[in-house]
Amino acid sequence: MKKPIYVAALSLLALFSGCSHRTPAESDLFNTSAEIEASKLPFNPLHWKVIISGIDPQRQTMSTLYGNDLAVQSARAGHDVYPDGSVLSLVTWTQREDPHWFGARIPGKVKSVEFVTVGKDSSKSAYKRFEGPDLAPATLSDTEAASARRDSILGKRASVMP
């Protein structure tokens, strides 16, 4: 008759031990690998509000478009042209598997941070690009490529957030 009591006691014990707290690893609490070294940038885009996000499954990257207040207000009102003084920033990360959820991917490492500063004439907005985890300023000799990136960023529509 000892075994059933033993089994019952064990199952109770197991039930309670399931409630004990384990201190998670630092990497389970903070995604430091995706951190942006903002001191290397003209602005920290994480201080701004989100406009829209996107995914490139082929390159396994995900990006988020942030904007300063002027830009966000304009994008969320559905305006086609950003007002003078708007600044947009597209941050692109490589993706990694979410260790907490099979079926999800989350930001891995920063791949690039792009800025578009809108002047009086939005077609002449300034484009800047910082590359790699070190955020090295990229010198774009190809002005066509730069303006294509700028137009792509300016052309993104805000995600609906009721």
């Binding site: 995604n31 995900m62 079926g103 991917r105 989350i106």
Partner: peptide, 15 residues
């Protein structure tokens, strides 16, 4: 809520 800062983004293939 829409004016709060971004904590993370997720790409959910499951749903």
């Amino acid at each position: 809520y829409k004016n709060w800062r971004t904590v993370s983004t997720t790409d959910r293939g499951d749903n």
